[in-house]
Every structure is written in C-alpha cells, then in structure tokens.
Amino acid sequence: MSPQARAFEGSTAVVTGGGTGVGAAVALALASAGANLHLIGRRVNMLDAIGARARTMGVQATSHPADLSTSCGQLELTQRLAQVLSSVDILIQNAGIHFASALAQAKLDELDALFVTNVRAPYALTQALLPMLKARQGQVVFINSSSALLAKPLTAQYDATKHALKAIADALRGEVNADGIRVLSVYLGRTATEMQERIHKIENKPYRPELLLQPADVAYVIMNALSMPRTAEVTDIHIRPMIKT
C-alpha cells in the first residue's frame, strides 16, 4: 500500500472543480485515503459520477453544483457549505477558466469573468471556510499554473489572475501558519484536461494528451505533500510534462 493509504480516514475535504481533470483525480485520491468529499462544480452529473466512484471506497461524497463565475453563486455556495459542514480538514482550490487574446483586442468582460472565477471565488471560499480549517489545523491547496510565474503574449488577462492567486496563497500562508494551517501552491505545466484541449484548439495545435501531464500525476504529488509529517511544509510545487514538445 502507498504511504498515504487511509491517511485521511474520517477527514473532510472540499474540492472545487471536482468533476473532471485534476480536481476529480485529487478527489478520488483523497477518497482512497479515507477522506469524505464535498465536490463543487458546474455540472452535477460529473460531480455525481466522481462521488459514486468515491463511495465505492467507503467514504461519503456530496455534490454541490455551483456557479463560481458570479458573486451571487459564490455567496450561495458559501452559505450552503456553512449549513452542511461541521469541519474541514482539506480545501482543494482547483476551479478556473481560461481566455486568450492579444491585449489590443481582448474583451474587458472576459477579464472580469476571469477575475471573478479565478481570483474572487477561491478568495471567498477560503475566507468562508477558514474558521473550520483553523479548528482542524487543516491544509489548503491552490492548483495554479506556470502562467503565475511567467506571463506570456496573448494571455495577459489569464496570467494576471494566476499571478493574483499566487499572491493570495503566499499572503495566506504567512497569516495562518501560526494556526497550524499549511498552504500549498501547485504550478502546473500543460496537463491533459478539458481546458487544455480547448487551448490546443485555440492555438490550432493537435491535442495529444499522452504527451502532457496526467491528472493522476498531479494527484500523486499533492497527496504526498498533504501526507508529510507536521514538522514540514511544502509551499510550492512546480510540475511540467516530462516529454517536451
């Protein structure tokens, strides 16, 4: 068995973007380690499918369909979670959207949508769940992007939100380490997800997921970081595809 097998027995994990890709992979890895899941996303059928798989591992799994692209949707979610959760041990912030365009032609409403979903939503959810995380000396994981570290032409609006997410994680870590909370940022290279498939289409490139990072790879690394003894904290992880294209 792996070092983290059932390491989180009876704990509670909240996962945004938990129906597909990296979010789903991390959720199932947590379930295999004994964590009960609260899955957040837009498509309830996808959440329910992951929840059903998790329940075969002997844990509870609840779907929370939510629109994180609006402040109203964020408020409704945080109010719902406050009613149904009594504790939170792990918060996985994975949900996000992507737009690409040259700055000269970029639509300002796309910038607004990126900010609300990629920055405001994880900020609001972390803020809402922080008292429960403090009570359990929990852990927060921000699934970020290599774009948070190097801005590129044609993606200024997206990259700016990922820079902002890095700032939130870094500032939060300094605020809550004394309460026993660990905060991890994971900076991903190109990963085989629905979003990456759309990006390849925009770039007019063939999508070959077998050449990219796999969601299970990301989940494996995150689980090892979460399972480390409390004498250590992993603050930043950078992962990229081994095969360079």
Rank of each mutant, 00 (worst) to 15 (best):
A225E: 03
N224M: 14
V183Q: 03
R182H: 01
L184Q: 00
P229L: 07
V221C: 07
M228Y: 11
M228W: 15
I168Q: 03
M223C: 09
A104R: 13
I202H: 09
I202D: 14
K162E: 00
V141A: 08
P206L: 02
A232I: 12
F99P: 13
E175R: 09
V119L: 01
A124V: 09
N118G: 06
L111D: 10
T161L: 07
P131Q: 10
L129D: 00
A113K: 13
Q139D: 06
D170G: 13
R208N: 10
V176T: 03
A232P: 11
T231R: 05
L188A: 00
D159H: 13
Q93A: 10
A219P: 12
I90F: 10
D170V: 07
A156C: 14
S145V: 09
A106D: 14
L130I: 01
A169F: 04
T126R: 09
R120I: 02
R190I: 13
R136Y: 06
T155V: 11
D159P: 14
A124T: 09
A225I: 09
M223L: 06
R198K: 09
T193D: 00
F142Q: 07
D112L: 03
K205M: 09
E175K: 05
V218D: 11
L130K: 10
L184W: 02
G180K: 05
L226H: 00
Q214V: 04
A232E: 13
I97A: 03
R182Y: 10
Q214D: 09
Y187Q: 08
N177M: 15
Y207T: 07
V140W: 06
A128M: 14
L108T: 12
K166P: 00
A178D: 13
F99V: 08
E110Q: 11
L103Y: 14
D217V: 00
Q105A: 15
N144D: 04
M223H: 08
Y187L: 05
K205F: 03
L111M: 13
L125H: 02
L108A: 15
T117D: 05
A151R: 12
S145P: 08
A167Y: 01
L211S: 13
V141Q: 05
R173D: 05
L108F: 11
Q137N: 12
R120T: 08
A164Q: 05
G174Y: 06
K162S: 01
R208L: 11
L103M: 12
L91E: 10
H98E: 12
V116Y: 00
S145E: 07
L114E: 06
V183E: 00
A95W: 03
A178E: 15
V119D: 03
V221E: 06
S227E: 08
G174T: 00
G189Q: 05
L211C: 14
E203T: 12
L114V: 02
M228D: 15
Q127F: 15
A106F: 15
E203W: 15
T161S: 06
